[in-house]
Amino acid sequence: MKIMVAIKRVIDYAVKIRVKPDKTGVETQNVKMSMNPFCEIALEEALRIKEAKLASEVVAVSMGPSQSVDTLRTGLAMGADRGIHVEFNQTLYPLSVAKILRALVEVEKPGLLLLGKQAIDDDCNQTGQMIAGLLNWPQGTFASKVILDKEKQVATVDREVDDGIETLSLNLPAVITTDLRLNQPRYATLPNIMKAKSKPIKKFTPQELNVEIKSDLEVVQVTEPPKRKAGILVSSVDELIDKLKNEANVI
């Protein structure tokens, strides 16, 4: 069985985000970019499944400008066998991503499609669900545990829901999106970074995959959240009570 993993290049989550002065988006020039952490978890899970000999190959897919190849190289250094880069230089919305993935699934015919539950840049949390719908595959979203049964061709997925753990059984092929606590991704070791250099990355364009990119969405503006006001230290209980009464009006 082949596993396909979608990985996205996003602004590193530890970087302080700055909104562009014209409010059209956030500043990405000269900003550290990394693999979306949830995608890292998805890839790690695929690698573990392969290491458990339940899959034969892990294919990492990324979409976006040419620098997405760097993110793919990271994925290959973690252990993916090969990469696919769909080059596109404008914003891709979840439905377009899902359509491209569907086209790639038709080419690659994986038995399992793994994605992060969401990307930390747009926080959409839609692609996994959309691609499952487009393919008409069962979906296990926000997975915190995944067990594969090769014989029965079934995946058992635990999901952390509000009232406990929900366990789903999915017939393969299926779509699984990964949550935070599923695993702890590995580091890219030097020997693997070296090996990754010779692993193949295949390039496509949306046209080549017969996917027309259009969107019903328009971003009106992007603004910073309101600044938090600095706290103050009160010097006595009386002062605190006074402030709670007269300023905060809570008692």
Partner: peptide, 21 residues
């Protein structure tokens, strides 16, 4: 790093892929 590895100055190593690492 690869050069140092070939020359056996380092026996193993990892390279951070993001700020978190």
């Amino acid at each position: 790093l690869l050069h140092s590895m070939e020359n056996e100055l380092i026996s193993d190593g990892v390279l951070a892929q993001d700020i978190n690492q």
